[in-house]
Simulated assay, not measured.
Amino acid sequence: MSRSCRKGFTLVELLVVIAIIGVLVGLLLPAVQAAREAARRMSCSNNFKQIGLGFHNYESAFGQLPMQLGGTWQYGIVNATGRNSGGTGRISAQGNNRFRLSWLIGILPFVEQQALWEQISNPFADGNPNDPWPAMGPAPWTTGYDPWMTDVPTFRCPSDPGFGSPTMGRTNYTVCLGDATHRNDTGLIRFDNNRWHDGIAAEVRESCRGMFVGRQVMRFRDVLDGLANTMMGGEIATDLGDRDTRTAPRTERDWGQMHGGILPCRDDPDPLRPQFWRSTTSNIRSGNQTRGGRWADGAPLYTSFNAILPPNNYSCMGGSDSGIGQLPPSSRHQGGAHVLMGDGAVKFITDSIEGGNPHTPTVRRGSGYTAPGSMSPYGLFGALSTRGAKETIETEF
Rank of each mutant, 00 (worst) to 15 (best):
M218H: 00
L224H: 09
V223L: 00
V223S: 00
T247A: 06
L240S: 12
V217D: 03
L224P: 02
L227N: 08
G256N: 13
L240N: 07
D244I: 04
D222F: 01
G226M: 04
D222T: 07
D239Y: 01
A228E: 15
A248S: 15
D242T: 10
P249R: 14
L240Y: 11
F220P: 03
G214W: 00
E235P: 08
A228S: 13
H259L: 14
M231L: 12
R253Y: 06
D254P: 02
L240R: 13
T251S: 08
R219D: 04
P249V: 08
R246D: 09
L224A: 14
V223T: 03
G233K: 04
L227K: 15
V217H: 02
T245C: 07
E235F: 10
G233Y: 07
G233Q: 07
G234L: 01
V217M: 04
V223Y: 00
I236P: 01
E252K: 05
G233V: 03
G233N: 13
M231S: 08
R215M: 06
L227Y: 05
A228L: 09
G214L: 01
A248D: 10
D242H: 10
G233F: 01
W255F: 12
M218N: 14
P249L: 11
D242L: 14
G234V: 04
Q257N: 14
V223D: 00
G214C: 04
I236W: 00
R219L: 06
D244P: 07
D254H: 11
I236M: 05
R250H: 10
R246I: 04
A248P: 00
D244E: 09
T238N: 14
R215V: 03
R215T: 05
T230D: 06
R246A: 11
G233S: 07
G226S: 03
R219N: 09
F220G: 14
G226I: 04
D239R: 00
N229F: 07
Q257L: 11
D242N: 15
V223H: 00
M232F: 13
R219W: 07
M218E: 07
R253M: 02
E235S: 09
G233M: 03
L224C: 05
D225Y: 03
R250M: 11
D239P: 02
M232P: 01
G234E: 02
G256L: 13
D244Q: 09
D225A: 08
M232Q: 13
Q257F: 06
T247L: 03
D222S: 09
G241P: 11
D254Q: 13
T238M: 08
A228W: 06
D242Q: 10
T245Y: 07
G233P: 05
G214D: 02
R215C: 05
Q257K: 11
V217T: 07
M258I: 15
D254M: 10
L227D: 04
T238A: 06
A237W: 00
G256C: 08
E252G: 04
D225G: 06
W255E: 13
D225M: 04
L227P: 11
Q216R: 13
G226D: 03
G233I: 02
D254C: 06
M232G: 05
M231Q: 04
D222M: 08
V223G: 01
G226W: 01
R215P: 01
W255T: 09
M231C: 12
L227V: 13
G241T: 07
R243Q: 08
E252A: 10
R253P: 02
D239I: 00
D239E: 05
G256R: 09
R246M: 15
L240E: 11
A248I: 00
